[in-house]
């Protein structure tokens, strides 16, 4: 960096998580069936409407480039509710993070193993930075990118796969970009414990990443080198376990690692952020919580 920055204050908030990447939802879209189960037969006549609301509290440790290290008590909220008509609302929030946020959708077709939805997707969260040096300071805020997309979810016994593509952005700061994701999760039941492992990949086109991570003239005047972000892929891996303590109370634990796309990590803003104490290039998250399910 050409200019010495003695004191830096970089605050970035970003919601990049794939919805099903959350430990809270990866396990709740489970439709695995047991051909010998009368309970399965009974559900064939049930209404598709309904859902759940889960509020959890527990310990969370998170290190990443967007925020200072989080270690301590944290609130987790997730939920899903679908109306008889097919419209649904789903939410996923952590106390100190923006995950996929609140989404609305419409479930228009279901086959035995596949669900098809049109929905809003939060393809990228807000970003806000404030950088201070000896002489001056610079700050900026980039709005989140809500997008409209198509999602299909395949469910087979203990495996869930999900594909999302969102070609229309509600963010009018840039021309339409493309957000896409692929996700697969495998669950194992050991007694009443459920263990799961999942892996996902998120794609964001150049239009999206350019808006968030390319350097503006103001940043270059401030001393940052010129940078134009290309498209990029985030890769996410997660393992976790859940145990039902009672009909309404769950114990959950998870570990998630997000490898952030090079086109994001190479941004001078992100490189500065990752150098701050308690931050890292990629995101490592661990949680241990009790949840109440309504």
């Amino acid at each position: 960096m050409k200019m010495s920055i003695n004191q830096c204050l970089v605050n970035l908030l970003c919601g990049t998580a794939l919805l099903s990447a959350t430990p809270l939802l990866a396990i709740t879209d489970d439709n695995g069936s047991d051909s010998n189960s009368n309970a399965v037969i009974a559900t064939e006549t049930e209404s598709p409407s309904g859902g759940y609301l889960k509020i959890g509290y527990g310990y969370k440790s998170e290190v990443g480039p967007y925020e200072d290290e989080v270690q301590g008590g944290s609130l987790f909220v997730s939920g899903f509710h679908q109306l008889e008509s097919g419209f649904f609302i789903e939410a996923s929030y952590g106390a100190n993070e923006l995950e996929q946020g609140l989404n609305l959708g419409y479930n228009f077709y279901n086959s035995e193993h596949w669900n098809f939805d049109i929905l809003t997707v939060e393809a990228h969260g807000d970003i806000e930075y404030h950088i201070v040096n000896d002489v001056t300071s610079i700050k900026d805020k980039k709005d989140n990118s809500g997008m409209l997309g198509f999602r299909t979810t395949g469910i087979s016994e203990q495996t869930i796969v999900q594909f999302t593509i969102a070609p229309y952005s509600f963010n009018d700061e840039y021309d339409d970009g493309v957000y896409a994701s692929m996700w697969a999760a495998q669950t194992w039941q050991i007694k009443n414990w459920e263990l799961y492992a999942s892996a996902g990949i998120e794609y964001r086109s150049e239009n999206i990443l350019d808006y968030y991570y390319s350097t503006s003239e103001e940043l270059e005047d401030f001393g940052f080198p010129h940078y134009e972000a290309d498209d990029g892929y985030n890769v996410i891996g997660q393992v976790g376990a859940s145990y039902p303590v009672s009909e309404n109370v769950l114990f959950e634990t998870y570990f998630r690692y997000t490898d952030i796309a090079d086109s994001i990590s190479d941004s001078p803003i992100m490189q500065l952020a990752a150098q701050q104490p308690g931050r890292d290039d990629n995101i490592t998250e661990f949680g241990l919580l009790f949840s109440y399910v309504f």
Partner: peptide
């Protein structure tokens, strides 16, 4: 059970 079976998967 904690989670009611999702009855979406029907043709």
């Amino acid at each position: 059970w904690v989670y009611k079976k999702n009855s979406r998967s029907r043709s």
